[in-house]
């Protein structure tokens, strides 16, 4: 029996109303979000893009609490030998930020980076990545993070492509997507041709590039790098910097350590300086550096730190 015409018309009308209401809802949602998260005045002109129910902000926009990608809360790490490598470190890295982490040898940079990547266990404080605690929700936190150590040892017995496939499997990257991303980054770093050879034959720079490709194909929300420019040739360094910007433009954050202060000053929008396990300075790069250079600031802080130690002694 055919449906009576009024019923059909009623259903259609009801659907249209729902769609219209839905559209209004979606149109007003960004405003709703901005009100509830108290977006600062200077970010009110941000361009919002909807990706999988997650609002991301274009470059330079840091919309408050909701987009904090890394939060280190009162983190301390004491090794079994009794050495306190990091003491009560608190730090926040927002989405879209390239955050430089600088300090002397043995200041606690690598310990911090390895702890937030879930490689080192710690007892005091907490580290949250995209809202997930690395201590209580390690798998969820690691799923959105990529970490590259200063001297990445990779599986020598695998070929480059086998290693990338291994990582892609661990991070559940779909086949088509991994192919596109490996091709993109492999070609950019001029490594695609060598991917069929065993990693054992790679030079230090090639291993570094392979490790970087394995990190970038994950499209991480937080990219953590320990001395990423060591071993890279100038072209690869330049390409890496471009990709770091691209990553941040897409709403991710980069947190990296370096001893090359010129690079840190040019590349980072935020800088943190650590000394003897204590955070001694952090903030926007222009605020930290002022009219001076990062090198001068670093040396001055180092001198003050040395005097403080002497005074205590």
């Amino acid at each position: 029996m055919p449906l009576p015409l009024p019923w059909v018309g009623g259903i259609l009308l009801f659907s249209l109303i729902l769609i219209a209401l839905g559209g209004v809802f979606w149109l007003f949602l960004p405003l709703f979000c901005s009100l509830t998260t108290a977006v600062p005045q200077e970010y009110n002109n941000s361009t919002f893009r909807l990706i999988s129910n997650c609002y991301l902000f274009d470059k330079g926009d840091f919309p408050g609490k909701r987009n904090i990608m890394l939060e280190i809360r009162h983190f301390s790490k004491t090794y079994s030998s009794g050495k306190r490598a990091v003491d009560d470190l608190s730090l926040t890295v927002e989405a879209g930020s390239i955050y430089g982490f600088i300090g002397h040898n043995g200041a606690g940079k690598t310990t911090t980076l390895r702890s937030l990547a879930g490689i080192l266990d710690f007892e005091e404080g907490d580290i949250l990545i995209d809202g997930h605690s690395i201590r209580t929700e390690p798998v969820a936190a690691k799923q959105v993070t990529a970490f590259i150590p200063d001297n990445p040892d990779l599986y020598d017995f695998l070929t480059g492509i086998a290693y990338l496939n291994f990582i892609a499997d661990l991070y559940a990257i779909p086949a088509e997507k991994r192919q596109t991303l490996i091709s993109k980054y492999g070609d950019a770093f001029e490594l695609t041709g060598a991917l069929g050879s065993p990693v054992a034959g790679y030079s230090h720079g090639m291993k570094q590039k392979l490790a970087l490709i394995s990190a970038l194909i994950r499209e991480p929300k937080l990219l953590v790098l320990d001395e990423p420019f060591v071993g890279l040739d100038p072209v690869a360094s330049h390409i890496l910097k471009e990709y770091l910007h691209e990553l941040c433009n897409n709403g991710a954050a980069v947190f990296f350590s370096t001893h090359v202060l010129e690079v840190a000053q040019k590349l980072c929008d935020h800088i943190a300086i650590i000394r003897g396990g204590h955070l001694i300075e952090c903030g926007k790069t222009e605020d930290v550096v002022g009219n001076s250079s990062l090198e001068d600031v670093f040396l001055e802080l180092a001198r003050q730190g040395g005097e403080a130690v002497e005074a205590v002694q």
């Binding site: 291994f166 499997d169 086949a175 492999g186 695609t192 060598a194 050879s197 090639m206």
Partner: peptide
């Protein structure tokens, strides 16, 4: 001196589960 060839071309890839990847490794 391990020979590194530079003529590799990407082929069709297949995805797998983490356990299978670890086991194969």
């Amino acid at each position: 001196s391990v020979q590194v060839r530079h003529d590799y071309k990407l082929q069709q890839m297949r995805g797998g589960k983490p356990f299978a990847a670890l086991y194969k490794k």
